[in-house]
């Protein structure tokens, strides 16, 4: 057995639509990962702090509010500040294609849009983290 993959799944910001985040969290659990789910309405500070306390390998953010261009960079900046700069960040939600490109340039590992097969997320994470 390889090293256990630990994932933080969080919903930053104000929208209350957590179905997607829960579906992903459940799929990652079923794929043998330890998933820390933190719930709705999280500030970037709370998410980054939880990620380093939990020593996760990856943070998954679900954003449907339109504030992704602010929230992703802010959380990644805070992770770096707190000594978690090596933590991979991926995301999902309602995010326009041109923004996806921008975010991936900024260092977001991947953005998964609506309709994504959860198996794709699982294999993406396993490949990235176990090589």
């Amino acid at each position: 057995m390889g090293k256990m993959i630990r994932v933080l799944v969080a919903k930053p910001g104000l929208d209350g639509h957590d179905r997607g985040a829960k579906v992903v969290a459940n799929a990652l659990k079923d794929a043998g990962m330890e998933v820390i789910y933190t719930g709705l309405h999280q500030t970037p500070e709370l998410i980054a702090e939880a990620a380093v306390q939990e020593d996760v390998d990856v943070v998954g953010l679900s954003i449907l509010s339109g504030a992704h261009m602010t929230l992703f960079p802010r959380i990644m900046e805070l992770l770096k500040e707190k000594g978690g700069g090596d933590i991979m960040v991926f995301g999902g939600g309602i995010i326009p294609a041109e923004d996806v490109e921008e975010l991936e340039k900024f260092g977001v590992a991947r953005v998964f849009g609506p309709g994504t097969d959860t198996n794709d997320i699982v294999s993406f994470l396993k490949e990235k983290l176990h090589g």
């Binding site: 990962m33 789910y37 709370l46």
Partner: peptide, 18 residues
Amino acid sequence: FSGGALLGDRVRMQNLSS
């Protein structure tokens, strides 16, 4: 079955992380 886990206690402890 999978060895995975859903760790959800932080949901109730949101006020503590800060």
